[in-house]
Design a protein around this nucleic acid. Structure first.
Length: 730
DNA sequence: AGCACGCCGACT
DNA sequence: GTCGGCGTGCTC
């Protein structure tokens, strides 16, 4: 009897074998008995004769049900799934679970039906009698009188209120119809005449169009406002004309109706959208439409990289440096890296776009693995925001803002302009800094600042694990004025209210704006000048433009300058550059002040004097010398437990498993160390970093010793995970 | 991860 | 005398 290997959704790094009536193709879902329960898994292989000897191996159970006639995924996605499991050293069954829309995971059949609305009998009557009062409701009835219509289409014409009302009156009802025959979107006509491309844009567009039929990775390195989206639009056009599909990945926050609208308006075709807030059904729908080749453009966040494409033509990753492309739990994949992998195996061009490219991508561009396309001019000759550093040492602080800066803010506000105050609220535990001389309290053996651990009231070095008491005075100038940097946005908002009582202010952070609509409303209100003082976090740096802002203030740069996370400087530079691109316009140039106790810090100086491009190249040099990514590969084991000792012990044992091979190659460990947020939900968290200049070596150690790690007695007592190519060392 | 089995404390 | 605590062990 034929035997199949099945990946079941359990955290085990293996597949399970079952007997089956006939061989099944890889990628077909099956329902199988597993212990005492019934699970849905995916076939990974099948054999006419079981490969193992049948005397010692346990008796195989038969498959209960075969759910698909055809595999769900094509060859490319099947091999991508294999690659994911081996590269991220993650259980196959869980890989499949992340790659599939949740409906399919739960066993929904792949159907040719799509949701639709139709008239009920009462509705048919109504279509004739027309007694309804609502004008819109009558229109809707009239539309459906000619037959059932796809929900998507009905929803695009009528508000949900109208539809809800009609459903409540039982005049219309949800049903399904056979999906439209493959829509031919290649015959679109441009709805808008594209603007004439600038010289630089023209060069980029021509370069991409010239090699549109095979895999070429591009880094589109374009300053804010240089018109990257226009480049996308113009290179997409010929791809669509050939009847091929374009997959566009955008950061979580960047996926606004405006973004989607821009593509729809240009081409006049339906754009498939995929993001985390959609219902499972809606996701499945777009997934199926893309698979059937009914959508020309699919825009989505991280997980959209798994969307099947019938006729792939191009993949674009916008704002490729954005951290939201890296999944931070479960299968910790990086959608940007997967995009490269996928474009390669689909043999289509790949565009990575950013004003502040990640050092990884920039390095690939500089060493010619990617074609480097640069847009250095802002469209319409808009001027660049001026960057300046404000030395806050020995200055009185008001709500965390230095005296000198308060006066600058006041003058901008008095001229009727908007001021944006940015607070870097990210999870860096603050360094302890002398407020008199700017000196940090450093670990002697690592020459890196200690991290302040509030829970213990002690300092700890996150490089060697050394710990000491919080000193009374500065080691350099003996001032007693030692401070931890960092206040929250709420505290800042309150303080600003006292400083500028007559100015209307608004706070934009994830606490203050829950839900997409609220953010958009606030942003509209800001640009309608309803507020003068804007206080916020990350969100303000992503994709929105504030033409009336003439002053941007960045507080608390110091936390990032001395963070234990070696990527903090890069992140800060990206943030500052992105923020600078948000303010001002041609006739109202903006200025930006960076408040710091370290005005001479080489990073800040390099950034303000030479710009991001120069800074990034400098940072790459430093990484090279320190053998840090992208010049080495990293993996992190993390563990958490109710008892700190358990998690720490486990990671020490993990380190012992790896020590012989790591020492033999030129690799190294960092830790085990407590995570920056040591205690979360009552559990203590630790991490162990493995590092090696050769990616291959790192992966072979991981693979080789993972069995050992899994069978450690503590492995079942702590929650542990493995993070390959981590982007966040916290 | 589930979901069992299994061996020790406070309840009708 | 039982109900139930969560420790550990297995799942083709």
């Amino acid at each position: 009897m034929p035997v199949i290997d099945v990946a079941v959704p359990v955290p085990l790094r293996q597949t399970f074998s079952y007997t089956c009536e006939s061989k099944l193709a890889a990628g077909v879902r099956v329902s199988v008995p597993f212990g005492r329960r019934q699970l849905i898994g995916v076939v990974t292989a099948s054999y006419d004769d079981p490969p193992g000897a049948d005397d010692s191996t346990p008796a195989l159970k038969p498959v209960s049900e075969v759910l698909d006639e055809q595999p769900l995924f094509d060859r490319t996605l099947l091999s991508l799934t294999d690659w994911l499991a081996s590269y991220y050293h993650h259980p196959v069954g869980e890989v499949w679970a992340t790659v599939m829309p949740s409906r399919l995971r739960k066993g929904s059949p792949l159907s040719d039906k799509s949701p639709a609305y139709t008239l009920t009998e009462a509705g048919e009557q109504e279509a004739l009698s027309k007694t309804l009062k609502g004008k819109k409701q009558l229109e809707c009835i009239a539309l459906l009188a000619s037959g059932p219509m796809a929900q998507e289409e009905v929803k695009s014409r009528f508000s949900s209120a109208v539809l809800k009302a009609l459903e409540e009156k039982a005049l219309i009802t949800a049903t399904t119809i056979a999906h439209k025959a493959s829509a031919d979107w290649s015959s679109f006509t441009l709805q808008q005449t594209p603007p004439t491309a600038s010289t630089e844009q023209g060069v980029a567009i021509a370069a991409i169009n010239q090699q549109a039929h095979h895999f070429v990775p591009y880094l589109l390195d374009g300053v804010t406002g240089s018109g990257k989206t226009e480049v996308y639009l113009q290179v997409i056009e010929p791809v669509l004309k050939q009847g091929k599909q374009v997959l566009i990945l955008v950061p979580e926050i960047g996926l606004t109706p405006q973004t989607v609208g821009r593509f729809e308006r240009r081409f006049g075709i339906t754009v498939g959208v995929l993001h985390s807030q959609m219902t499972d059904l809606a996701r499945l729908n777009v997934w199926q439409q893309a698979r059937r080749g009914e959508l020309g453009i699919i825009i989505g966040t991280r997980s959209a990289i798994f969307t099947p494409l019938k006729r792939p033509g191009m993949i674009i990753v916008d704002e490729e440096h954005d951290e939201s492309f890296k999944q931070q739990d479960g299968l910790r994949y990086h959608a940007r890296d997967l995009a490269v992998k996928r474009a390669h195996s689909e043999n289509v061009p790949l565009i990575l776009g950013s004003a502040t490219p990640s050092l990884e991508s920039l390095n690939n561009a500089l060493n010619k693995r990617y074609t480097h396309l640069t847009l250095s001019q802002r469209a319409g000759g808009a001027s660049h925001t001026q960057l300046k550093v404000l030395d806050s040492r020995d200055q009185p602080l008001h709500a965390g803002i230095a005296q000198g800066l308060v006066s600058i803010m006041r003058s901008h506000l008095q001229q009727g302009n908007q001021v944006l105050v940015f607070l870097n609220r990210r999870g860096f535990a603050p360094a302890v800094i002398c407020h008199h001389c700017g000196q940090t309290v450093d670990c002697k053996s690592c020459e890196r600042p200690f991290t302040y651990h509030k829970s213990q009231g002690r300092l700890q070095c996150h490089h060697c694990g050394a710990s000491r008491r919080l000193p009374e005075q500065c080691g350099e100038c003996h001032s007693h004025d030692l401070q931890t940097s960092g206040i929250g946005t709420e505290q800042l908002e309150h303080g600003l209210g006292t400083l500028f009582p007559d100015v209307k202010q608004v706070r934009i952070d994830s606490d203050a704006v829950k839900g997409k609509d609220k953010l958009i409303t606030r942003l509209d209100e800001i640009n309608a000048r309803k507020y003068q003082l804007l206080v916020g976090t990350q969100i303000l740096s992503k994709g929105h433009h504030f033409p009336h802002v003439t002053l941007v203030v960045v507080l608390d740069c110091d936390g990032a300058l001395f963070s234990a996370d070696f990527r903090a400087a890069e992140k800060l530079a990206q943030l500052i550059t992105q923020l600078a691109g948000r303010a001002g316009r041609a006739n109202k140039p903006g200025e930006m002040w960076l408040q710091t106790d370290n005005p001479g810090h080489p990073l800040l100086q390099d950034l303000i004097n030479n710009g991001f491009a120069h800074f990034a190249r400098q940072a790459l040099q430093e990484r090279k010398l320190a053998l840090l990514p992208p010049y080495s590969s990293q993996a992190i084991f993390r563990a958490e437990a109710n008892e700190a000792g358990l998690a720490l012990n486990f990671l020490q044992q993990v380190r012992d498993c790896y020590r012989p091979s790591v020492n033999a190659a030129k690799g190294g460990f960092i830790g085990p160390l407590p995570c920056l947020i040591e205690k979360r939900q009552g559990r203590f968290r630790f991490m162990l970093v493995l590092q090696c200049p050769q990616r291959g070596a790192l992966h072979s150690w991981l693979k080789h010793h993972l069995k050992e790690v899994e069978s450690l007695p503590l492995a079942n007592k702590v929650r542990w995970s493995l993070d390959i190519d981590p982007v966040d060392l916290s």
